[in-house]
Design a protein around this nucleic acid. Sequence first.
DNA 1: TTTTAAATTGAAATTATTACAATTTTATAT
DNA 2: ATATAAAATTGTAATAATTTCAATTTAAAA
Lengths: 146, 146
Amino acid sequence: MFEKYVRILKEHSMKVTPQRLEILRYLDEHRNHPTVEMIYLELKKRSPSLSKTTIYNSVEILEKHGIIQSLRIIGNETRYDYRSDLHHHFICKKCGRIFDIDLTCPVIDRVEKNGFKVEEIHGYFKGICKDCLEKEIEENGPKGTS
Amino acid sequence: MFEKYVRILKEHSMKVTPQRLEILRYLDEHRNHPTVEMIYLELKKRSPSLSKTTIYNSVEILEKHGIIQSLRIIGNETRYDYRSDLHHHFICKKCGRIFDIDLTCPVIDRVEKNGFKVEEIHGYFKGICKDCLEKEIEENGPKGTS
DNA sequence: TTTTAAATTGAAATTATTACAATTTTATAT
DNA sequence: ATATAAAATTGTAATAATTTCAATTTAAAA
Ligand SMILES: [Mn+2]
Ligand SMILES: [Mn+2]
Ligand SMILES: [Zn+2]
Ligand SMILES: [Zn+2]
């Protein structure tokens, strides 16, 4: 069940603790880019002695080792992403969900031509997701015929 | 001196107050994407009765009217930008400065093909700026010859 | 000049995050 | 299997950013 996450931690010579395993599993199975609070509330159900500080400590060290990544997109909470590879995001203004967008950024060259050395790329789009667009059409008729 | 900002506020039928004028002028003249704290500390010098809450209120309403925009890029503070038009940013990991990057994002079409309706684009790059790169070369010799 | 709605202010409350010291646990060496 | 040391977890307290709120002041319309 947890072998996968045990392996990841050991590859980074990090100590294997039940808390870290649960956090990794949560992030892996809930690809919803959760906040610390969301992880905490969910895991606390099964492990009532869990401390929120442990979540903060764990996501910090997991990110430092490049196992996960953090996002600051909406509100004033940091969100965490099981995927640590470079990808973009789409935030739906209606339902609040955060979607992964896989595309290679084609503008790095142009930025580097200006003399900057680019080490990280962060990009996200805001708008209305497919599901919410379809719901709008059901409710208001096509093209917002009111 | 302030006519420009008076005009902007009136165009949006917002009340013209000295606090709003000062905030707009600060943002216009300091294109450093400051935090509320930075604006506050600077303006407080000349207007000791200024309240930080006023800064929060003002930037909120200015953003709501599309006059300025907010950025959440580094740390856990919101930064404010006199420019409200779509543009990207570059954050230097050495000196911490935030640069404007003007380029038209060429990937919107691809995102919209997936069914999303894109309304906002937020993009930023992290790395080392030109100045800091040059300083590094001065200090360490070219190509980091140590 | 009067009036009224909106803005400003400062204090208190809330929320997210970090710091810290005591305790527990993991992983290693015996 | 046990002892050990370093690291992780925990709970509480501290900090930092932001929001709420009620009282006061002010801008702009009548
Ligand atoms: Mn993601
Ligand atoms: Mn900018
Ligand atoms: Zn949606
Ligand atoms: Zn720099």
